[in-house]
Nucleic acid binder design. Structure first.
Lengths: 252, 252
DNA sequence: GTGTTTATCGTCAAGCAGACGACTATGATC
DNA sequence: GATCATAGTCGTCTGCTTGACGATAAACAC
């Protein structure tokens, strides 16, 4: 059977981004306000069409840079901290997920430290970091009492999947360091785990665990006191990507 | 900005299947022989175009049924064994992955017990179960001394990703039972782990572990002697999907 | 100095994992 | 039928990890 362009239905392919960070002890995601129908005025995940000559990961990295200014981490330079962590999450292709046409969206998950301020095409009012519980609270009310509309399209599902991926992945990988600046303390790393998992961890056992896991942390020699209290040692992420033994999420 | 069909490039969207089973102590994958260019005559993963009105998981289930006769497991009936396990794996969209046109493939992973014989459109010579090491052995020689051509397209990468997913997922989930018939013995389950991981496990510690993990196995009361030796108790898969504590893959 | 905060080290008991001995129940072989 | 081989099942022991928590250290605020 020769190649017949009419033999398959045409699809639009997009990438959507779940960009997570930890701000003020809460796991937050980047949301942008839609400027056009459908779902005009509603919050959504950042994303856009994949271009004709682009790989999926390239498209995701481009969108991430456009929305946040973050460069994606180059997997070829693992030891070096040259940007945010970016990985493919899952693909969503319900025929009715976009009322305009048949769109298949390849969602990606990005983890970033707190630093950057949102910038959606230069217009800051159309992009914000929002706590994920707030974004996922369907039909509830935000911290300011305003009613919260659910995210556009199936983005609530995508965000929930991304959060779940992040929660489970910091158990057995060193990914939690992607939420930290280049140099960080054990306490800062612990607060990342606490924010992502939504639990309190024992500082003493946590310290013993992470410093005892080979390849997880390497001391830089410096110390800091930016948290108040006794100065803490500074660390960088070690070469290990898989943690053995893994971090254990406390019982549900 | 109104909807403009020319604003995005059209893609073809396919599903490809990594169907794994355990045969004769080896992890095997379903391969089909391509009957048309490109890669005519080469082995490939089964798959096909997503139809215009189909969800991705529906398309994957349809292809699985067409190629193997297996029904996909309905997630709404978790305790019941009504088919093979099927889950989305990852999406592959390199612009050059198909020389004919821009194709994005949403790969799925299926795990099945040994029973079914391949049937690719009724022609058995164009479908076979092949050990995954053989399919992934680039440019080597098969067990029969024949030279082995690498899989078509990027299917070697997809298969490798699927195998890795299966290897890690049987650690912390009860998915290994998807490789077993409805009723099975602890020894049969152990041989699944040994085949998928490619290691030897201590029968005594394995027995203690799986029978001690709550929700993993439920005894049916029957026994069997089909393996020779002392009769073994028969079990069904329990309700648990996540294993706590997980099975531990021995050191590399 | 005193109190507060955070970091870090130590101790102890419970539980789990790996190594491996021992026993059991079947079929195969002589 | 005795013996052997095979596979399944139960125990034991030892070392390591974990979770709970006491104790000490080093900063800052007053």
């Amino acid at each position: 059977m020769p190649y017949d362009p009419s033999a398959f239905p045409p699809f639009a392919v997009t990438v959507d981004l779940v960009v997570l960070t930890v701000r003020r002890h809460a796991l937050c995601a980047l949301a942008v306000r839609r400027g056009e129908p459908p779902f005009q005025g509603r919050w959504a995940l950042p994303g856009g069409f994949v271009r004709a000559d682009e790989d999926l990961s390239q498209a995701a990295a481009r969108e991430l840079a456009e929305e946040t200014g973050l460069r994606a981490h180059d997997p070829a330079v693992p030891a070096q901290d040259n940007g945010a962590h970016l990985e493919q999450l899952a693909t969503y292709g319900d025929p009715k997920r976009d009322p305009r046409m048949r769109v298949v969206s390849v969602a990606h998950l990005a983890l970033a430290p707190d630093l950057p301020a949102p910038r959606a095409g230069g217009d800051a009012s159309n992009a914000r970091w929002a706590p994920v519980d707030e974004l996922l609270k369907q039909g509830g009310y935000g911290r300011d009492g305003e009613p919260v509309a659910p995210l556009a399209f199936d983005h609530a599902q995508i965000l929930a999947d991304g959060v779940e991926r992040a929660r489970s992945k910091i158990e057995y990988s060193s990914l939690a360091t992607a939420f930290c600046p280049t140099e960080f303390t054990v306490g800062e790393l612990r607060r990342v785990y606490e924010a992502v998992w939504g639990v309190a961890l024992d500082p003493r056992n946590f310290h013993r665990k992470v410093t005892g896991t080979p390849g997880f942390l390497v001391p830089t020699g410096g110390t800091t006191t930016r948290q108040g209290g006794r100065p803490a040692q500074l660390f960088r992420a070690g070469g290990a990507t898989l943690l053995n033994p893994p971090m254990l999420r406390p019982e549900v």
